[in-house]
Structures are given as C-alpha cells and as structure tokens.
C-alpha cells in the first residue's frame, strides 16, 4: 500500500521532490499571508470589545496553532525515521525544528504584544503562554542536541528520541500548566470571553492559517534540501546537480 512512498526515502529522489514542491509551497504562502494580513488589517470589522488591537489575531492564532502541530509533525518524522530507519525522515525532522521555533517565537511575541493592551501586562503566567514558552524550550533542546553531535547520522537519531520524549510531554505540560494556573490565580484575566467569531473575521483568519502552514512547509522543504546536501556531500549526484545548475545559470 505504501510502496509508492519508498523511493522518496532515497535522498536523491527526496531532493528532487523538495525542489519540485518548493515553489508550490512558497509563493502561495506569500500570497495567502499577504491577503490574510491585508484583509485582517484593513477590511475585517473591528472587535466590539477590543477595538483594533484584536487584529493581531490574524498572526497570533495561526502561529500558535501551527507551533504545536509543527512539533507533532516533527515527532512523527522522528518516529518514521526510528521505526523504518529512514535517513530522510530525520532530515525532515531537523529541517522542521528551526521554523517551528520561529513560529513559536512569533506566537509568544504577538501574544505578549496583544496582552499588553488587553491585560495591562506584557507577560502573564497564563496557561497557554506558559506552555508555548515550554514548547520553545523543547524546540531549542532538540536543535541544540542535534548541533552537539559531529556525526549527523547519530545526531538525527538522538534528536529524534528527544523530539519523541517532548511530544509525549506536550499534552501533559499543556494540561498541567492549565491546571496549575487555575489552581493558583483563577481564570480572571487569562480567559477573556471570546465572542463566537463572525464570518467576515473568520475568512481572513483561515487564509492566514493556510498561509502560515504553507510557509512552514516551504521553509521545511528548503532546509531539508540543505540537510540532504550537507549529508550527501561527496555523492556523485550532488556534484552532477551542482554542475548542471551552474551550466543553466551560465546559459541564462
């Protein structure tokens, strides 16, 4: 059933696939993010409670949702790599980590910038903010573990184990933090009443969400190509590819 997938475990095929997919991810991502932002910033109606500050939602919510899903995707890639011994799966995993960390950072920053006018403070130990922060730590841990090894084959496996340990922990962290927060200070400021979102607000949000997802895919694909070259440095196909790329460049 999954036989068609197997050729892509080969770095060369994976590289070709990445090159093919890259423009299809990147340009729609740029388009969607632009449309979502402009629509959200200029055309969506104001929130009756929060005024114009709620427009941060168009980047905050997509990044917050996708920061978690990127971590899960990373862990799935790690699991595939460990179970089926796919080297390319580890490359995909480590390609996702930096972009996941960036998206988590965006979610944190926009959350803080939204929190200041709404809650009166840049940072509250709100359950969601705290679990985002811990998620950022988990991303950084996976990345620094990967960076600590000279042998990237070994590094991929080690970082994969850590990603799996992390993903088991993400839900536990989420619920423990939520529970801790409600135990300590109650949900006075952390959960403002969210009115069910109007369709004219929802559409730009969905477009921005799609844009962020495509953006993450695009960067993952780009970084995965780098990772493949880094590991297949001495293989003839890499040299041939570089050669042919040069020739086409000269021809143009």
């Amino acid at each position: 059933m999954w036989k068609w997938l197997h050729p892509y475990a080969k770095p060369e095929r994976a590289y070709q696939l990445c090159s093919t997919l890259q423009p299809y991810f990147f340009w729609p991502a740029v388009l969607c993010i632009l449309v979502g932002s402009v629509w959200g910033l200029a055309f969506a109606p104001q929130d009756y409670q929060q005024g114009d500050s709620f427009r941060i939602i168009y980047i905050h919510v997509p990044s917050a949702i996708l920061s978690m899903s990127t971590y899960v995707a990373m862990a799935v890639a790690a699991l595939v790599g460990i179970v089926w011994q796919w080297r390319t799966a580890f490359m995909a995993m480590i390609a996702m980590a930096p972009v996941g960390a960036v998206v988590t950072f965006i979610a944190l920053f926009t959350g803080a910038a939204w929190g200041k006018p709404m809650w009166g403070t840049w940072w509250v130990w709100d359950a969601r903010l705290t679990s985002e922060l811990i998620l950022l730590f988990l991303y950084l841990g996976v990345m620094s573990l990967y960076g600590a090894f000279e042998d990237k084959q070994q590094a991929g496996k080690a970082a994969g184990v850590m990603a799996l340990v992390g993903v088991v922990n993400v839900p536990i962290i989420h619920y423990s933090v939520e529970w801790w927060n409600t135990l300590h200070q109650g949900a006075t400021i952390s959960k403002f009443d969210k009115p069910s979102i109007a369709p004219e607000m929802l559409w730009p949000l969905l477009i921005a969400l799609l844009g962020f997802a495509l953006f993450i895919a695009a960067v993952t694909v780009m970084r995965m190509k780098n990772e493949i070259i880094r590991r297949e440095y001495h293989r003839p196909w890499v040299k041939e590819m570089v050669q042919s790329a040069k020739e086409t460049n000269h021809a143009v």
Binding site: I33, S53, R55, I56, V99, V102, I106, T110, W114, V219
Partner: peptide, 28 residues
C-alpha cells in the same frame, strides 16, 4: 493609527514578517 493600538499591532506584524524573512534568508 489602528484605533490607538498602532504600536502593538505594527510591532506584532513587523516582528512576525521580520522573523519569517530572516529564516527564509538564512535557509537560502
């Protein structure tokens, strides 16, 4: 002016696009 929230809104969008641009640039 963003209804008085200019700083927060534009800072959020600015930092977001900056971070996204930087990671794309780094990858390239």
């Amino acid at each position: 002016h963003m209804g008085g929230y200019a700083f927060y809104v534009w800072a959020s969008f600015g930092v977001t696009f900056l971070a996204m641009g930087l990671i794309v640039l780094n990858s390239m």
